[in-house]
């Protein structure tokens, strides 16, 4: 399993828990407009929850530029990479 697939699964699990939707309804192309209740306040709650549960911190300037779940996964992967790097 690639890191992106694993990250996708974890991100979708958190989105489903926060927004009360089904994980199976989510894909990398799903946008906020596709999910009931994913408004700007829910988005803020979701970002904080992702950061908390994945122990990452998204870059501040990108926080509002996340068009779809694929964007979230890519950013999460970038943020996870240093955390998960194995020491030589």
């Amino acid at each position: 399993m690639t890191s992106t697939n694993e990250t996708f699964r974890r991100v979708c699990s958190i989105i489903a828990a926060e927004l009360g939707c089904l994980e199976s309804d989510l894909s990398t192309t799903t946008t906020a407009e596709d999910v009931d209740g994913w408004d700007s306040l829910a988005h803020a709650r979701l970002i904080m929850s992702l950061e908390d549960k994945l122990s990452i911190r998204f870059p501040g300037e990108k926080l509002f530029d996340l068009g779809c779940i694929g964007d979230l996964v890519s950013l999460a992967d970038e943020a996870l990479a240093p955390n998960e790097r194995t020491p030589a």
Binding site: S40, L41, A44, R45, M48, P59, G60, E61, L63, F64
Partner: peptide, 19 residues
């Protein structure tokens, strides 16, 4: 209104500070 939400406010501050 909702802009006072704690998570939203924190995110907004981070966004503007970083950008």
């Amino acid at each position: 209104g909702g802009e006072k939400d704690a998570d939203y406010s924190a995110m907004l501050r981070r966004y503007i500070a970083a950008k």
